[in-house]
Design a protein around this nucleic acid. Sequence first.
RNA 1: GUCCCCAUCGUCUAGCUUGGCCCAGGACACCGGCCUUUCACGCCGGCGACAGGGGUUCAAAUCCCCUUGGGGACGCCA
Length: 497
Amino acid sequence: MSEVRVRFAPSPTGYLHIGSARTALYNWLYARKTGGKLILRIEDTDLERSTKASLDTIIEGMKWLGLDWDEGPYYQSEHSAEHTEAAKKLLAEGKAYKCFCTKEELDQKREAAKEAKAEYGYDGTCRNLSAEEVAEKEAAGITSVIRFKIPDGIGEVVFEDKVYGRLEKRYSDLEDFVIVRSDGSPLYLLSNVVDDLRDGITHIIRGQDGLGNTPRQVLLYEALGAATPIYAHMPLTLDSKKAKISKRKHGEAVAIHFYREMGFIPWAFCNFIALLGWSPGDDREIFSREELIENFSLDRINRSNSVFNIQVNDPKFFTDPKALSINAHYIKTIDISELAGMVKPVLERAGIWEESYEGEKREWFLSTLDLIRERFHTLNNFAEGGRAYFDDSYEVEERALKRNIVKSPELREILPKLGERLEKIEGFDGEDVEREMRAMAEELDLKPGTIINGVRTAVTGQLAGPSMFAALGAIGKERVIDRLKNVDWLFKKAEAL
RNA sequence: GUCCCCAUCGUCUAGCUUGGCCCAGGACACCGGCCUUUCACGCCGGCGACAGGGGUUCAAAUCCCCUUGGGGACGCCA
């Protein structure tokens, strides 16, 4: 059996979104699994809408996701001569014909048919023009498009889809479609087939929205005297209202770069989208690259569409909760030095990165990450909820302020005093600190929790976090004492509430 | 309007090919409890689905039909 060759063929008319990323991922997985090749081909024949900026974000997105390709990028627009050549061949063989209907006429007919609730396919006006009629119209300077001629008779196109099984389409349900515009430029249906032929594509893995094109493309392969590739149509990704995901409607929340900006680990994101329409057949949901490649197969792709459950205006989730939970899983379990490499750019962007984290403070940096990563969901959390561990510029959470400061105004005096007491103790290990706090609580006849939670709020700005004493150890004696002695800002904030 | 595809918890899904092991399993979310100085940590528990109706069969989530619902395609877009 010959080598598997698959392709990812985006059109550069926007950013890479969830749906296209998943298509890219499935193609990549299949190529890697079979030891085949993934070809990246840019379908830029729509010059009007294609942009360089869009192309760049698509490539960046692929790279960020870690989906590498073996050939390309190839550009469809560079092969338009081949496409029109193929069209001419079909024309010469009588498998296509020139159509002189104008766009306006056709639009009108389509509108009329729509209103009359009738079928609105092409009616075949120019299908049987004689050579003389064609010559006459051309002599009169009327421009024409080239239409592919659907075979006559009551036959049907039959093809096998890896996901949907055997599919058939009657010729009578197909209309003669345009393959070359009146300006001589080729159209997608044709270009796509010609390119796939040239690139030696063996398997076409694409979204189910391409299913309607398949019968026509199969006909094109046959007319061109070529064997058809193997098809695998994947179900679509819908939004929570069950509408197809689109850039226009959903904006940033479906853009790949959005997930990078929000602090996703690339592979965690791949892991998540892989599960939108595919499952291994058992309960596993977390896969390393190698495991996913190993387990992936086309025939375990679902047939039904899935919902990408984006939450809008949800204070807790900015995207599908499951995506977040998978990301959190990776944050918790990934190798700590690998995590450090991912947190670095986040801290840099937040302006709180220090070179020493890769030098003399590396030990401290790694153990601190390990301490706080437990309850984080995104990499950005390290610069948000984790900010106090790295810098003094942290904010205080309103909920923490209300619960731990507003209710205990006496802390305004107590916290600085605690700072002084801690200053006097020898070391700074958890036990000593804890003993000191509890002793102080007893002396003042307060619940230990009041002091401990007050300290948490003052020193980290957070309501939640790791064990307080471990946290203090990570932040360090000096900074802790400093923060405890200067709690006025907190109480001013509390008063301002 | 025509054609095509799909249909299991709120969401992602397992089970459907080869009916019985499924009064349907897991994950996320949600709710409750425990742990604790705290928590979007952890642990334990709970809620929660075979769209509806007909068949076939000793037996149907699994097979067949109809209805309903959802999606897609029908461009001189890709």
